[in-house]
Design a protein around this nucleic acid. Sequence first.
DNA 1: ACGAGCGCCTGTCGGC
DNA 2: TGCCGACAGGCGCTCG
Length: 275
Amino acid sequence: MPELPEVETFRRLLLRGYNGMPSVLGKVIQGAHVLWDGILVTPSANEFRERVPGQQVDDIGRRGKHLILHFSTDSLILHPRMSGEVLLESQDNPVSKHCRLSLDFKDGTRLAFINIRKFGRVWLTGQPEEVLCHLGPEPLSDTFTPQKLYAILQNAHRQLKYMLLDQHVIAGLGNIYTDEALYLAKLHPKTKSDTLSRSETERLWNAIRKVLREGIENQGTSIDWIYRGGENQKYLHVYNKDGDPCERCGNPIQKITIAQRGTHLCPTCQPPPSD
DNA sequence: ACGAGCGCCTGTCGGC
DNA sequence: TGCCGACAGGCGCTCG
């Protein structure tokens, strides 16, 4: 599920508090539960349960699609992958069937990492940079400029869809926002990255930032049963719109497969590359 | 270097 | 109604 805007939404909700729950900042952990061991990359479940209690939540960050809870001595890194959610609730609530890991705070609240499909991953580490160092630049940061994107694209001869989904290249884009950004930029997803002109690159740069910013403003994209939090689904232009008329030209939106992923585009506004 | 295929999981939806 | 296959917002691996 979550791409950058959804994870950023989790971060902001935890910082600000929601659902009648206060912010998690300053909370002290009393107990830790690992309900499915496979969710932990490191350390072992037993070590996790021993190491976490007593630590306090000092800050919450995000890097790409990773949510980072900075504790007194360790950092807890959560990657929701396809079906992950973070839930702040009272310990009086029954534990969700799909809860894979949870923290009980001393004030009676609980942070639950919900993961229907067991694709999500969790790290507890004193060196978060070791987990995150493989990631490409943050697309919304000031240092991510059109010039930087141009250099990245010229450095490879790959289809744009593959390129944008690759977290080593840019951190945070997934299938929805990639399709939306390519549509806004009027670029076909099979276009080879190093064939883009400066102005096409600038269009793509603007489109990436626009779809991510709008996704955050709308608190993420909810799709049917997986994530019901956000409003952004109302504002999608191509994703899951196959057969609908393109808002720009009226021709039907098409769905094809690239990188084993459903890929949505307007074949008229996003003409296929000639090569 | 690049991209296709597959595996990891659980749930929903549509077709028969 | 029930069964069965296709499909799903991610990513790491192998192979050609």
